[in-house]
Design a binder for these strands. Structure first.
Lengths: 245, 245, 245, 245
DNA sequence: GATGAATGAGGATTCATTCAT
DNA sequence: CATGAATGAATCCTCATTCAT
């Protein structure tokens, strides 16, 4: 409490700024913590660093979070806001093909999640899942499950409308999720350790993934024989395929 | 070489056992360390735990590895053996369609890497990449780059033989890699925190991924419009696509 | 500067005490460390002991000194304050014979250094010199060299004024230094392990050393005034000795 | 036990060499230990280093010495052999002035002790005295006391023969001891950390010390013969000095 | 005897957490 | 509320000592 409090005029402003900052404190701490947890992992991040990056002292951090672990949980909770409700609605009323929906889904996910700091949570959860079973379960139920349901609904819509031919719907969702998870991992892990210019370009990456996912790799758009397996009937396959090509 | 070694009976065996153990030590420690690093991360793993799991005392670990960090590096180095040379050769002489090659590639990768402990290295590297820039660079050059080149060659073969139609070859490789990385992450992270029965079935997962990758999602095997983007001309797209369908 | 500081009563005092303690910490730690390093050597001294003797916990020590080694360096640095500047001046203006100067020099050295904790540094440096080459060089240049120069100047003065006859000036300085070093060693090492009563009496020791140094051992010489002391009974002594001469 | 044992001829030699070495073991270990203890102090010396320098394994060291502490004691004991009996006798029958005796005493001490590894013991004891009270007492009684008695006897002789005028005999001995201790300290501590060329020249140092001790610094005295040396012209000197007295 | 692999108590250092100010 | 000095449990690492070979 400074003397300035007694000085009229300026006082209010300062007071106001201070309170604004005060309310912003937890948020600033969560931001700083997210950055550092993502960058170095939970264990390797020191609370003092978090506090310093948030511009407060170590003690202040513990004013807002009971422990480092609670801070971690708060970071996760804070960044997995139920955007799915909003998205669900958006997709419920989507006009257009299911292919467009998928493309739109991934594009919008990148813009609103993947490209933002929130994407760090994915990396964080993957790195620390085993150390925080409780928060992992929470994440599973708040993020993974809704996400899968959302994608599943898109795929179902495609199938119902005759746009998609999907053999194994339960696992097809991973064809959408896997590329996104990979992109996030690339951004926050190995990809971040690669020289400038060699890093993944997100838009191009997403475009490629969507194209292949939607279009397939085969030129003869006759679907690949999904029952084809490699061995032991390799020869047979070779013949059959050879014939087809 | 002592005379006692020539004396028949128990001596020889015990001697042998001791020497075998001595030679086995580093391997046992590396195994234990891999397990724990993958499970809990580098920082959260205590060297004493590693030693205990390997059945030795703390001090013994430091007999073989100068520090915890050296242990980490050794774990990574040990598990990224250049299997690629062997694989390259295998694929050089592969008889069959490129579709088969891809399917075979992923199947064999799962059997020989994904399903084994070695797959933990991927999770480990992704979690700790930023904390170990040196070993990350090593991993990049010893694992990631060769892996990408291998897959790229398969895709090129497919294109050359007229089997594949690939728009963006540089990024198409990620359509093969991403599913594998995702599978490993699932196995070692979130997926491991899920109740039995809900976990990913690797074979089915791979089958689905390959099918979709190869066959595409669209029933009309006319490729998706690769130039299609979502915004800002959303409406236009909707119309155009709507027309097509 | 908080308002609470302006509130009279206990607050202020306590605050003050805390701050005073905080500022005193490093000094208290250095004192404790000097004691223990001198007593047991660097390696055999545990930081926890140092902290305990300073009345703080282990962790607190590391708040002020990065490592045990830094603590050692700080201990040395702290205790070799450039008293030589002050002394040089004192001797520059010294009135009296060069014999008196020498006697005064050694007496004053004992009072201001030898008898104080600072003398432990000599023992410490001699014990640990080889383990701390860097700080040893520092000590050489900050203590030994200036000390030798100071003594050399006294001897030169004596020679110039025709009081001293010195054959080998470079080595004559050691006739002054050696007794002081020996005294310190005695105090802090073997001498400290001897039963009460057998220990060296510093004043008597210095008197003897000075007498012999000044007067020589041979009878065919007018003895130096062996009872001459600097103060306060200088006159009385002079008379007694004068009688003898 | 190697196979070579079964080969005739060479066997004996090898066996012989082995046994010779075997008996030399403890000595080699003591030598190595002395070196290292003197160089780094007791605590900072690792037994493994000692063993390595002696060319044996760590385990072997413990075959000969129960513990590191026992090794220390043995090192001290080994190097303080009662040379005093021999010296006492030598001095009992000394022909010549007491001044010569003193000069001879210091010269011979340097040759037989100061210049050899044994001098390291002094440094060692001074550094570690407080940590080894038991062995310190032993050292006091085996080395310091006899040494002081020896020197005292020389001084007494000088006084009795009217050669020396000594006011405080008890402390006069330190005028002989201090320079020697200082020389040893210089050799093994700070002096060893000084650039080549700046180091103390022992002979010159001793000459200076003896000259000053004998002759005094004051001009109003017949100088001690500064050219006096002990050998080879010992007899000549004896005569000359004898004449003077 | 000799070896050196193994041990584990001991010590330096870190860092989450507390609390007086 | 905010601070940051203080704490001490936790952890990495060392090294004297043991013991099976």
């Amino acid at each position: 409490m400074s003397l300035s409090k007694l000085i009229p005029g300026k006082t209010e402003e300062v007071q106001a700024k201070r309170e604004r900052r005060k309310e912003a404190r937890p948020g600033e701490l969560l931001d700083a913590a997210l950055d550092l947890f993502v960058e170095k992992g939970f264990a390797a991040t020191r609370v003092e660093e978090v506090a310093a990056r948030a511009g407060v002292s170590k003690g202040t951090l513990f004013l807002y979070f009971q422990s480092k672990e609670e801070l971690f949980k708060a970071v996760v909770r804070e960044n997995i806001s139920g955007r799915f409700a909003e998205w669900n609605e958006e997709f419920e009323t989507f006009q257009g093909t299911s292919a467009e929906m998928l493309r739109y889904c991934m594009t919008v996910w990148w813009e609103r999640v993947g490209a933002t700091k929130a994407s760090g949570i994915t990396k964080l959860m993957i790195s620390e899942a085993k150390n925080f079973p409780e928060i992992t379960a929470f994440y599973q139920q708040e993020v993974i499950d809704p996400g899968q349901r959302l994608i599943r609904r898109i795929l179902e819509r495609g199938v119902e409308r005759g746009e998609f031919r999907i053999v194994d719907l339960d696992y097809a969702v991973y064809s959408v999720i896997a590329p996104m998870v990979f992109l996030v991992m690339s951004k926050h892990s190995l990809g971040a350790c690669v020289p400038q210019g060699k890093a993944l370009l997100p838009e191009r990456y997403i475009a490629s993934q969507v194209d292949i996912m939607l279009g397939g790799l085969l030129t003869n758009t006759t679907p690949a024989d999904p029952t084809a397996t490699i061995s032991p009937d390799n020869a047979a396959n070779n013949k059959k395929n050879g014939a087809r090509n």
